[in-house]
Design a binder for these strands. Structure first.
Lengths: 235, 235
DNA sequence: GCCGGTAATTAGCCGCAACTAAATCGCCAT
DNA sequence: ATGGCGATTTAGTTGCGGCTAATTACCGGC
């Protein structure tokens, strides 16, 4: 189904997902451009599919993306706004499912992934009002505002903390249910206290104490985890 | 997006809509079969599209529909069960939007039409529980139960009432926003009192008094309205 | 300056669900 | 019994968003 966004654009669900993906991936890029192969990997589609989709998107909505063959794709200011609208939907829905419907932490993402494309502006507004115009979702991720601005993402990656440093979990990546279930099972949820005990060299595990119980043995976490958990440092 | 239903079937959104449409239209049919042209009209697609879709549906899911060329289509018991699952989603969502999110009466249908195809079993269950396993939606339409049974639709068409009879509005057709807005504007909502004053002959208007105010002049309603409003007779 | 490998694009295809135009079926009336 | 008409189906096309296989462009190394 195709959906009219507040910014006045009418996009297919697939196009919205591409914009969202570009937005997320561009953070890890130096120049704001995202390679087709990276996008293909992230969206779990063939590279050729991405090329085709970007060509169509660039032809039909040149105001949203800047695509140049073999140079990847970048979002325009307007494209970023549309991506933020979709992400706003996603995170509002996540928080709503969590708060109002009592969904478990690790299930909200999958449901929101489908709902984000079909809810109306009115639905968005009512949910936002009901939740008191929240700034952060259940994983601690910032919820973009209606005006296109976005609250600051808080925290630094756990992987950057030196041994001995500690803090509170500010946010965790929200897009892998298995990771979320694991994090929840070991107590790594927003607000939880973490302390770095030791960092093994050469990409080895980081040993982290979770919670206030000094008796509990530290956990050994790989980089895949410590890069996705963000911490507010403050001993 | 294709969706797995509780009955174990995986259907496209379009297929779900066809099953739902057949279910609704079959009531007005003597033998339970629905003509392709009727389906085409209802779904606002070309007759040839319906033929094509029914052929595919019958080929891929023979357990759901009984389609014979030039003889229309009927639902099997299982097909009816799947249709009822979709309608359950639809009406639960309508009631939820109305009760929990304060949606106006005439807007719930359009939003539910999109949401019904994408919510999970878990969402359905939580919403149903939150609403206290309701039996009727905001328009008075029965909400099918999880087990595939359905509460009795209550009331008789207003058009069948003789002058002098009165009763309370039990339910109204829910699928045309303009009609719903009109009905709401004249006070014809579930629970409202209506009294037939006069029925003009030869398909002429029915004059109906709405509400308890005997001073208010009666409304003149056409058959398009009086066939879609159902009344609990009493008094 | 060329050579090779990797990334990206092109070319051609598929399934879905719609469409139009043309053929055909069935039935009713003559 | 047959002619015609309306309902239905067939045939062929479209746009979307994927796919694979084959080709091309770029980049670093020699």
């Amino acid at each position: 189904m195709t959906q009219a966004r507040a910014s006045g654009h009418t996009l297919t669900e697939a196009s919205e997902n591409y914009l969202k993906a570009i937005y997320h991936l561009r953070a890890a890029s130096t120049d704001g451009r995202v390679a087709t192969s990276v996008l293909a990997e992230y969206l779990a589609v063939a590279p050729a599919s991405v090329t085709g989709m970007l060509q169509k998107l660039a032809a039909e909505s040149p105001a949203l993306v800047d695509y140049a063959p073999r140079r990847g794709v970048a979002l325009s200011a307007l494209g970023e706004k549309v991506a933020l609208e979709v992400i706003r939907h996603h995170r509002l829905i996540e928080l709503y499912l969590f708060e109002a419907l009592g969904y478990p932490w690790d299930e909200v993402h999958a449901e929101a992934e489908r709902l984000e494309h079909v809810i109306s502006e009115a639905f968005e507004d009512r949910v936002a009002a009901m939740l008191g115009d929240p700034e952060y979702d259940p994983h601690g991720q910032p919820i973009p505002r209606k005006d296109g601005t976005c609250p600051e993402p808080v925290g630094v990656p756990l992987s950057t903390l030196a041994p001995g440093r500690s803090g509170r979990v500010a946010r965790v990546a929200d897009d892998r249910a298995a990771l979320l279930r694991y994090l929840a099972s070991v107590g790594i949820v927003p607000g939880a206290r973490v302390e770095v005990v030791e960092q093994a060299p050469f990409g080895g595990p980081m040993h982290v104490r979770v919670g206030d119980d000094a008796e509990r043995p530290p956990l050994a976490l790989g980089a895949q985890v410590t890069d996705e958990v963000f911490v507010d440092v403050g001993d």
